[in-house]
Amino acid sequence: MKNMNSGAKAISGKSSLKDYLSGYNLFSYFNYIFLTIIVLVTIYPAYYVIVASISDPTELQRHTGLLLAPVGEITFAAYKLVFKNPMVLSGYMNTIFILVVGVTINLIMTIIGAYFLSIKNVMFKKYIMLFIIFTMYFSGGMIPGYLNIRDLHMLDSIWSLIIPGALSTTNLIIMRTAFVSVPDSLVEAAKIDGANHLKIMMKVMVPLTKATLAVMVLYYGVGHWNSWFSASIYLRSPSKLPLQLVLRNILLANQSGGMTGGVGLDEVSQLSDLIKYALIVVSTAPILVIYPFLQKFFTKGVMIGAVKE
């Protein structure tokens, strides 16, 4: 009764409609302003980096305070230097390979693991979950990890960057959370239709969790893209280094004169600051390009009602 009344009011009552709308407007007003501030505040670092990367290095050194526009003569010397480095190209190639193969493996492993952990009544689930989570907190450390890779004959192989990283437990847990949120009724319906676990996983779970899957692609993808530490300990051949390690090494070289024992002259190439910024641009730009394609997966609303067998 009460519902019908207020419903009727909402539709027909002009004053209450206006109240509703003005409440909406005030909030939206502040919301838009607040979010705009957020944008301005968070865009500054990126803006700073881009502007600094093309500024004149000597003027940049002398500049203090906020940077609002490139100082001095605009120069792309830093970018030229970075791209002239032959390792950068091989770095990109390696990273793309790792990304494509790696994320595919990641998705497969994560989906099967998360699915299992989301099944309502399966024996040993709790123990397997503990078995997995325990590894998040206790590990053997770098040395046994390294020896392990060596024993598996993966040293100096690009696979050492893919297989050991096949699963991230945190991501696994997040994916499982998404699967758990899929309404039981749909799972039951599929079971009644005679679906086995594989079918349930592929026909019910996966299609209904596209948003989280997109996030998985993003998380794993960015993880692979940014990683350099494993490469630094497992790879020997310079031609196999992924992009981030190459860039990191370029940066380090331009900041201090060589490794231990150097003359201590503290050599600073004129471009060293610019290179630091240019590298950030070079390594982040591809992510910004790919992101919009993934974004649409998790900004759309899902009408679960429409997805009925």
Binding site: I112, Y115, T135, G141, P144, L152, H197, M201
Partner: peptide, 20 residues
């Protein structure tokens, strides 16, 4: 279905865990 995941953790997490 979940066997590969278990194997993964055994090989890459538990096998080297003695290092602790």
């Amino acid at each position: 279905l979940v066997l590969p995941v278990i194997l993964y953790y055994i090989i890459f997490a538990y096998k080297p865990m003695y290092g602790a």
